[in-house]
Design a binder for these strands. Structure first.
Lengths: 232, 232
DNA sequence: CCAAAAGTGTTCAAAGTACACCCATGA
DNA sequence: TCATGGGTGTACTTTGAACACTTTTGG
């Protein structure tokens, strides 16, 4: 950083790309757009776009997320994932992308963004490998991050609507981790984790059987103790 | 990403900044350079520099690390930390920096990089807050990452020389976490974590008292089970 | 011998897993 | 009434914290 000359910096384009995940029909799904132009015309890619001159990185990601899904900022969890800048990752020019991870609940059908030809929610295994650019790797990193963070944060609730049952939350964990969990132990763990869930007082029978208590997200960001930890 | 025009991208400079940590005299220290020019002339900052036109992000970080410390690539742990791109973070122009975290053992005295006026190892609390640009935040994020990763990875060994004792490894944990650990339970935990440590067969009395077994890093990257987990 | 640090054994408490069992609803 | 999922109780196992104790060196 010391001693650089602003007049001779190497020209680079900076974009944000989005790994937008949701849980649908018991599986982990990602938002992808079909590319209409070269390079990779016809292939699917993660949504993304340029960072504008007066925009912070997170703000750019929020704007792109809103453009692609119609979600208002704050309605979904959004965090920076990692940056990717291999010199040849885009054949046209040097592009460094700052990837972000978004977790959304109950997603609306994707609306065609200003420049996205066609967007859809696709099961992760269905589109990757096969994405444009280095997006297979970006998606892989995003899924790995989501899996890891479910263990020790309250993030799983970001995949649920504002009011949800313990069983719905459990199905999120099962979808992201790809393995069944014991409903009874899971129930005890999440309801006894301080600040994770707050009962609304209402019940629902939308899952069938005995009415289930409804909860909303609690104030806790981290989970003490973490979930999982083997549960063979 | 879809539909951008390479001829009209917003001009941005991309740099890498380094959070280089080491343990000295029982405390966590960071490599800082004194700035010779505006802005922030005379203030200390994290080392860093431009990403060159044909260089990947990690390669740029490796090059900077070598320039500042003389360490050859691979001699230290180096990973991407996060990117920072607030529009006004550098008053001269739009600069997006991809920060990296490096953990080094037994560091040589910093050598003046090609453009670094003066570099030194400083205790983290001594220089932050007070760093130039947004480097207080970058350093804080780096330290937080290091603290967290010691729990569930074998990274602590990156702070040790190629051959080290359990007590030396414990002092690394104590310095980074800032709290004492029970030597006896610590010994049992790290020696029973599969793949963390490999005995060299040699012993040393450099710590005084009964001779201690010497170890080198094992092949494991992750620790099962993780360390810490309360230990009040 | 004494001090100092390495390393082991043992006890107790806490947490996790497996699973039997009861509850409350819709059909 | 039965099927279905919600929710609780409990026995067993595993893990971790605390700390007494033995070992092996230097001075």
């Amino acid at each position: 950083m010391a001693g650089y000359d602003p007049r001779t910096f190497p020209a680079v384009a900076v974009t944000v790309d989005l790994v937008v995940l949701t849980v649908r029909d018991g599986g982990l799904c990602v938002l992808v757009v079909r590319r209409g132009e070269e390079p990779y015309a016809g292939r699917e890619a993660l949504p993304g776009g340029f960072v504008r001159p007066d925009e912070d990185l997170l703000a750019a990601a929020q704007r792109e997320l809103a453009e692609e899904t119609g979600l208002t900022p704050g309605a979904a969890h959004l965090e920076q994932l990692a940056s990717y800048g291999a010199p040849d990752r885009d054949p046209r020019m040097r592009v460094v992308t700052v990837a972000h991870l978004a977790l959304v609940a109950d997603p609306p059908d994707p609306r065609a963004g200003s420049d996205a030809a066609a967007a859809r929610w696709a099961p992760v295994a269905e589109v990757s490998p096969g994405l444009a650019f280095d997006h297979d790797r970006v998606l892989g990193d995003g899924v790995a991050r989501a899996r890891a963070k479910l263990e020790y944060t309250a993030l799983a609730a970001s995949f649920c609507r504002s009011s949800f049952t313990v069983a719905e939350l459990r199905r999120v964990y099962e979808a992201v981790w790809g393995r069944p969990l014991d409903p009874r132990n899971f129930h005890r763990k999440v309801t006894s984790a301080a600040g994770f869930l707050e009962p609304t007082g209402e019940t629902t029978t939308r899952d069938g059987g005995r009415p289930a208590q409804l909860y909303r997200r609690g104030p806790a960001a981290a989970l003490h103790p973490p979930l999982l930890r083997a549960e063979n």
